[in-house]
Amino acid sequence: MRLCLCVRVTLFIGVGHETTGASAYSSDEIRGLLDWLQEDPANRHAIIDATSLLGAMPWPPVLVAGVLARCCLFMPLQKAIGGVAGYYVASFTPEALEAIGRNLARPSWAIARQLSLSVPKDLAHPLTGGRTLATGPFYDPAQDQMLGGVINTYSLLAFAETTYGLSCLAQSIGPASALNARSRANLALVEDWVGREPLFSLAVGRAEKRGTAVTLLCVNDPDIAPLHGTILARAKQLLGHQGLTHPDGQHEPGLRAALYVNAFPGMAGDFRAWIGGVRPAEDIHALLENLRHAWLRAKALVIAEELAARGEDAPALAALPGLQRLAREVEDLAALLGGLRDGADLARHRDALTAGLQGLAERLATVAPD
């Protein structure tokens, strides 16, 4: 008689921050996951894609600590060598490493050498001498050292560049916990701004599901619904380098304020922006104001183009060309004032503000409706 003991291993595989749609797991969902893992840690494992979680974990610190301790995390070194290129950093729970070690003796299927976490015990007998995790490509946080080497030269370079960048952030801002706190504060800033700005709303309706690495904004302007896509495209031109060319031939230079704010096709939302813990709050506020400014400027342009295509003039612009220029000067001054961060900024721009206000006063004295 043969006895077969079958052990069922259950995996949960998820994405910590789904940046395409700007959503994340809620605190209740994370709490439920941690409780589920704790019930059978040897046979229950969670594998989380943490690509955009570093410095942007939206949960309370106690849940963040639980995720780091009980979940296996992996993240590609996206920005280190120009692309993902198949190189990842992964963290494993002790239970997951034990399961990997057991699988070495009788692997369930062939494992590509590039993905192998084990190395030969005896380099003189790489195929028959057995394999071990003890000197694999692991960093041991308890010992604060690498147990073995990295898989290849490219991953070494990527790892070195990534860790250098993280050390710079730690010196300038603080540890990952400080970045997490800043990311939550930045999301609160966005939510407060949107709550006061009827033109915008957040694509993720449930507050507890919003991520803190990325925000996704919708423009609510039903009066020009047929022109929505055209205005959005022109607004992004103004936000970047291209700028806008008005029907009268005048060119409005690009703001260079947001070069990549595209929402993914098919996703709800018009502007998608990174707001994680690296960015200071004043930059987030300036970005939001620029989004609003760009939309209104693009809307005026597209309406003027539609009227011109029908052979009609935009009354305010055609009848009062001087006021058209005045409006732009007022907007320029407003943008400058909105970008001032402190008293030092005000002092540096005092001359420009004074000259601008004097010019406006002179024009207002000479420009009047017919």
Rank of each mutant, 00 (worst) to 15 (best):
M57A: 14
G16I: 14
D283Y: 11
H349E: 14
P120W: 01
L123N: 04
S183M: 10
L33E: 01
C4T: 15
T215G: 04
E282N: 07
R310E: 10
A46V: 07
G174H: 04
A134R: 11
G359P: 01
Y25G: 03
A185G: 06
T93L: 06
Q145C: 14
N290C: 14
R363Y: 06
Q171H: 10
Y164V: 14
S27W: 03
V330D: 08
I231R: 00
G129D: 11
A365D: 12
Q171Y: 09
G243A: 00
H228W: 07
E18M: 12
R210Q: 02
S116G: 06
S118K: 03
G339F: 11
I173V: 13
A235Q: 00
C6T: 14
T212I: 04
Q250N: 06
F271L: 01
L301D: 08
L34Q: 05
A65H: 09
A300T: 12
A263S: 03
H45I: 03
A178V: 15
A263F: 00
R131K: 11
T354N: 10
Y88D: 08
E95Y: 08
L259C: 03
H251T: 15
A365F: 09
A235L: 01
T366L: 12
L239S: 01
A134F: 11
S155W: 05
A158W: 00
E29H: 04
